[in-house]
Design a protein around this nucleic acid. Structure first.
Length: 195
DNA sequence: CTTGAGATGTTT
DNA sequence: AACATCTCAAGA
């Protein structure tokens, strides 16, 4: 059994991943407003986490923002096509973040339907790259602080612990054994089968 | 409903 | 060669 979920910073990142469920993400990217309710997250808990982009203190132009202050948006490009968005969770200098994996549209749904080319509403943001596309998030927002426009978190009714569930992280090979994915049980906007 | 392949560019 | 993914087509 590896140590990292028991460490202090891991606990904080995991707490953020859990507690983000039920809160809102508001975007005014492009000048029009839309908002989603977060229903799925994953924790990437720091240098001891083999799945984390900052594993073993790896530091590069791509993941530099992870080493910054909590509340910064870490946006990366993957599979040659997709943007994914994280929120940095730990103190300056300790690289950890929470991946935004799934959300349900609550405001500006027409705008998000346009960005997502007419897919059914439950697929507008049911996945990290779908979520980023729906909100207009790209690399241009890398390093943005999520307390102000054009993208910020607003408090919502927290998901009660009884309605929260966890699972293995999706698409992860190294460090795959840890249950660091969190989601609202039964929600239709969660990205994958809820094991 | 499920599975599998292809798209596509960056990082290791 | 892998990658914190998505879409579509085909099959059960």
């Amino acid at each position: 059994m590896s140590a990292f979920p028991a460490g202090f910073y891991a606990r904080k990142t995991v707490a953020v991943a859990r507690e983000l469920l039920g809160h809102f993400l508001v975007s005014t990217v492009g000048g029009r407003r839309c908002a989603v309710r977060i229903v799925e997250t994953e924790a990437y808990v720091g240098p001891e986490d083999p799945a984390c982009h900052a594993y073993d203190w790896h530091r590069s132009a791509r993941n530099e923002v992870m080493y910054g202050a909590p509340g910064l948006l870490y946006v990366y490009f993957t599979y040659g096509m997709h943007w994914c968005a994280n929120i940095v969770t730990e103190r300056d200098g300790f690289p950890a973040a929470v991946l935004l994996r799934g959300a349900e549209p609550v405001e500006g749904v027409e705008l998000m339907r346009r960005r997502r080319r007419g897919v059914p509403d439950e697929e507008i943001a049911s996945g990290p790259a779908k979520l980023a596309q729906a909100l207009g998030i790209t690399g241009a927002l890398n390093g943005h602080l999520v307390t102000r426009p054009p993208l910020w978190v607003e408090p919502g009714e927290p998901v009660r612990p009884q309605r929260r569930a966890s699972s293995l992280r999706v698409g992860v090979r190294r460090g795959a054994e840890h249950r660091l994915r969190f989601f609202e049980r039964g929600n239709r906007h969660v990205s994958r089968p809820q094991a």
